[in-house]
Design a binder for these strands. Sequence first.
DNA 1: CATATTTTGACAACCGTTTTCGTTTTCGTG
DNA 2: CACGAAAACGAAAACGGTTGTCAAAATATG
Lengths: 123, 123
Amino acid sequence: MSTRREAVRQALSGSSGFRSAQDLYADLRAEGSKIGLTTVYRALQALSDSGEVDVLRTDEGEAVYRACDTESHHHHIVCRVCATAVEIEGPTVEKWAAEMGAKHGFTGVTHTVEVFGTCASCS
Amino acid sequence: MSTRREAVRQALSGSSGFRSAQDLYADLRAEGSKIGLTTVYRALQALSDSGEVDVLRTDEGEAVYRACDTESHHHHIVCRVCATAVEIEGPTVEKWAAEMGAKHGFTGVTHTVEVFGTCASCS
DNA sequence: CATATTTTGACAACCGTTTTCGTTTTCGTG
DNA sequence: CACGAAAACGAAAACGGTTGTCAAAATATG
Ligand SMILES: [Zn+2]
Ligand SMILES: [Zn+2]
Ligand SMILES: [Zn+2]
Ligand SMILES: [Zn+2]
């Protein structure tokens, strides 16, 4: 677990929202770090591979990352303005997705569920 | 409504699954059409703007399109192998998403829900 | 038929991400 | 501490999907 990867993890933990690789790179450089963009991408890749951070794609196709409190399966409600996210759980949704899969003869069923809105302080 | 846009719409309707712009371009060229890739992108843009086709992003960030039977709000269960998709509705999920938004003080709440799996014929 | 408008497609530019590769840092061992 | 192997690093180039540019072609208008 290298120092650089730790720096990226911390930069990410410092925010409650989803951030892109370039956001984090800018943050770290602004703090005086000499980290390279490549390393930020590599760190994020490793962190998401190990399940330590969540990834999702914006409508524009950019990958954004978040250091969530729990590593167990969950979803998010994300502010469209400031990207702040709240972790949410949905037993209802979990069951529904599984049922839908079975009903249509699909196996190995997974799902992606994200909720978007404008948070209280951005309203 | 130009001829080319109509050609793209038809190429898309010919498939039951989600297809990328480049997929459709390849299909059309294979059929002998002299359409350009730029035009395919433009047609898909217009079709999705007008709500005639659904768009979603793959994990790799590629945009894929589908001509769905209904233009009203719905979700999909998508085969990870052949990209075939089935339209599904989830009143349960709709309600759940709205509740979650309200509970956390978010306004203008929307959601994305997609289910993935391996379809019967690909298993 | 002449002219204005729109559509088209080859090509270049763009942007986020990955690969490449030579250098630097870290780490295990004597 | 010294040394070499291995891992991490960063700059720059390559990549792949998408969008912008612009002149040519098609279509509409009078
Ligand atoms: Zn907000
Ligand atoms: Zn879930
Ligand atoms: Zn299938
Ligand atoms: Zn819905």
